[in-house]
Design a protein around this nucleic acid. Structure first.
Length: 550
RNA sequence: UGGGGUGUAGCCAAGUGGUAAGGCAAGAGACUUUGACUCUCUUAUGCACAGGUCCGAUCCCUGUCACCCCAGCCA
């Protein structure tokens, strides 16, 4: 695996060398309200790999301070995804486990005159906050006595007030040019059952207050997050200082990673699932880890992709070909290579004996002979891909079958097309060919060169397969679809189905198995495959300068 | 028109006061029982722009422009 190397690693090295820290402790803090996607993978991989690079630790901490959308199903999903990626957290914590300690720190702030209970309504709070260009103004409740604040805050906890009736706010500076510092809310009242705490609490701490404390409680040294929290760092440091935290963590930010034509926002992904536009979070078009996995991406390909993509403070959008490259690199030497046809065109070898089936040995992977061989069948009746035949060669670069032209059928013989049969619409229904026994695979025939090499399936032994072809992860954007909502852009072309065949040797694959269908690219057996009902998802296409029209 | 962040090739991304790594993509060629793979070669006199300092600037300074983030009792 690639070695991690980025600006945060440099920061850690410097901190270690300068004695600012004597170890590295990171954390991955997902909110358990959605499935993880490829964007999270960047955070996960960096959090873990960075600490591992220094023999440090990485905690998994569920940031469950808002009970509204959070649920146990997501906790299990996130743990499963982490496991799939190959990471075992040093510890698993829940932000809600610290509610009591967090509460005590709030009390401390009140006692120090740095926090107060506010009676302003949500609308009033917004109005008092000012705007981007105008300073805010102090709440009339800002100067309550410590005693009164203590009593009121206790009453908030005791459930004496309705949702939204009061908040606890940090007393900082309502005129700060950084709006996050304008007396941020620390606690809100929410009479809502929590997935772990039940109804124990009716006040919940806000992210800005809870997060730095949680990091400190756990002894995190480097708290990594995405760049939009840059504005929050002064507040993070303020709480750490004013709460007199023993451990002093520091926050570092990196830019978010997007992939072209891919929806990455949790909110939109949820919309796609709940609106029934996709089949679920593991729909192979989804950029979720479960979706990518079902489509055929491997954990190591995703890791390599993230590591090679690097890290900076820029929000970037990388091309999907980047991800594909690492899947191919990962699978090239380990995926068995089988032959398949996607749009079957029957051919008959006129000079081959009727009823005879011949078996050849084919390498499972021509670039990795250690993978051994499998048997492939050959007979008079075969299928080739419709794309692999044309009556008249369109140009001299055509490397497939054409009338009066000879190609090698992979792993077997040279065949020459001699005539075609067509239906009333002019569609080719059968291609008559002849074969040359002297060109049998393995005989090292050198007398003449074929036009090219194509795949085939033997008609009596091959297995029917449904191929799911995905051209894009989520949607394709064209001139016509630009400006439409992402749901409107989720066009039918994002999931094409083809019914074709695969050679007999590939029939024993299991859901989740990966392989290459020669020139057609990399595939993964879908979880819906059962017995002879095979469904293959295309993970990615191979590079090819060929298009059917050239 | 407040504050913060960021601009290095089509896309990512290193780098540094001393003459622009690497990957992806793209193009050319070789090889080939996959138009794949592999191999070879090509791709920024240029680091958002304009000035300035300096023997020398992508790096330091000044100004300008562009994009992103912030006005949740979300995270």
């Amino acid at each position: 695996m690639a070695e991690i190397n980025n600006f945060i690693k440099t920061i850690m090295e410097n901190d270690l060398r300068e004695g600012k820290v004597d170890h590295i402790a990171t954390r991955f803090p997902p909110e358990p309200n959605a499935y993880l996607h490829i964007g999270h993978a960047r955070a996960i991989i960096n959090d873990f790999e960075l600490s591992m690079a220094f023999n440090g630790t990485t905690n998994l901490r569920f940031d469950d301070t808002n009970p509204v959308n959070e649920g146990a199903e997501y906790v299990d999903g996130i743990i499963a995804d982490l496991k799939w990626l190959g990471y075992v957290p040093t510890n698993v914590f829940f932000g809600s486990d610290y509610f009591e300690k967090t509460y005590e720190k709030a009390i401390l702030l009140i006692k120090k005159g740095l926090a107060y209970v506010d009676d302003l309504s949500q609308e009033e709070t917004t109005a008092y906050r000012g705007t981007l260009t105008e300073p805010g103004k102090n709440s009339p409740y800002r100067d309550r006595s410590v005693e009164e604040n203590l009593r009121l805050f206790q009453e908030m906890r005791d459930g004496k007030y309705a949702d939204g009736e009061k908040t606890l706010r940090a007393k900082i500076d309502m005129a700060s040019p950084n709006i996050n510092m304008r007396d941020p809310v620390m606690y809100r009242i929410l009479h809502k059952e929590h997935h772990r705490q039940g109804n124990k609490w009716c006040i919940y701490p806000m992210y800005d207050f809870a997060h730095p404390l949680q990091d400190s409680f756990e002894g995190i040294t480097h708290s990594l997050c995405s760049i939009e929290y840059d504005n929050h760092r002064p507040l993070y440091d303020w709480f750490i200082e004013k709460c007199e935290m023993e451990n002093v963590p520091h926050q570092y930010e990196w830019g978010r990673l997007n992939i072209t034509n891919t929806i990455m926002s949790k909110r939109y992904l949820r919309q796609l699932v709940e609106g029934g536009y996709v089949t679920g979070y593991d729909d192979p078009r989804m950029p979720t880890l479960v979706g990518l996995r079902r489509k055929g991406f491997t954990a190591s390909s995703i890791k390599e992709f993230i590591l090679y993509t690097g890290l900076s403070r820029i929000n970037s959008t990388t091309e999907a070909s980047n991800l594909d490259h690492f899947l191919m690199e990962d699978q090239k030497l380990v995926a068995p290579r089988y032959m398949a046809v996607f749009d079957p065109l029957p051919i008959v070898i006129d000079n081959y004996p009727d009823g005879q089936v011949e078996w050849f040995d084919a390498s499972n992977n021509m670039e990795n002979l250690e993978m051994g061989t499998h048997k492939i069948a050959f007979s008079k009746n075969l299928y080739i891909d419709r794309d692999d035949f044309v009556e008249v060669k369109p140009n001299k670069k055509w490397k497939r079958l054409a009338l009066d032209s000879e190609v090698r059928l992979m792993n077997s013989y040279f065949v020459k097309a001699v005539s075609v049969e067509k239906d009333e619409n002019g569609k080719i229904t059968l291609v008559h060919c002849t074969y040359d026994p002297a060109t049998r695979s393995g005989l090292d025939f050198k007398e003449r060169k074929p036009n090219g090499t194509i795949q085939f399936c033997e008609a009596s032994t091959c297995k029917p397969v449904t191929f799911n072809l995905f051209d894009v992860l989520i949607f394709d954007e064209t001139e016509e679809t630009k400006g439409l909502s992402f749901i409107e852009r989720l066009n039918n072309d994002s999931w094409q189905t083809k019914n074709g065949f695969v050679e007999v040797a590939a029939k024993d694959v299991q859901p989740g198995d990966h392989f290459q269908l020669m020139r057609n690219g990399y595939y993964c057996v879908d979880k819906l495959s059962t017995g002879d009902n095979l469904v293959f998802n295309r993970t990615c296409s191979l590079k090819s300068s060929f298009t059917p029209n050239n």
